[in-house]
Amino acid sequence: MRVDISKLMPPSSIVAGPCEPVFRWETGAAILDDAIGGGFAIGRVHEVFAARAEDSPACAGFVLALAIRNAGHSKPVVWLRSERAVRGGVIQGAGWAELGGAPEACLFVLAEDAKALLRAGVDALRCGGLGAVVIEGWGRMPELDLTASRRLSLAAEKSEVPLLMLRVDAEPVPSAAETRWQVSAAPSQALPGNAPGAPCFDIELLRCRSRPAGQSWRLEWDRDRKSFRDTAVSGSMVSLPLRRQAAQTGNGPLRPDAKYAA
């Protein structure tokens, strides 16, 4: 209902106070949405850090799922990468579609350095009508100082396009971001035959403007409903303790498998 009310309100001005309503998009996981005030704010900067460099695909998947959730099937998503990011693999349209997105509507920008990346990011944010802009930055990126961050956030507020900063191999530094997250891959719920299931993420809220932070969740991305699901309440499986290895289930992968033995 809060969202309904906020949708009726006019969009926020440049500086949003704690009570000023902003447009938000929900993730689908109610607990998380409540913790950040009803969903991710549109026209703001959200930083997502990969917990470790190996978690970069999971982190990218989480960011992409968020972007898909806001963009739907028609709004384009602009994904900007630096040349360093390509070392982590080339983005695949098939994999994008497998997460529920529409790669045909999206633009992929490859910038040679961080400066060009941020500049292209500001240009993309000025273009209205986008579902989301994603900037994938690898490494420390000293160019992303408070000024650059503020410039990005102003551009995002003006065009009401959310900016998702995907950071790999980097430490959080002060910035103009509305929320800051840390994401790592989480063991998925095994399908029959010990097959890996839908993508799961461990996410931790590092910072949320004017709200308490520090909570963490384990979310599963449901491609067909285009929605996140808190695995703790899904009922199909008891949630595992966070930040701990999943217990070895039985003889696990060594067990000969009925499905593929034939």
Partner: peptide
């Protein structure tokens, strides 16, 4: 529908 992703998001 109803299948986990069969193709990866990133390819080497």
């Amino acid at each position: 529908k109803g299948e986990p992703p069969q193709r990866p998001l990133f390819l080497f």
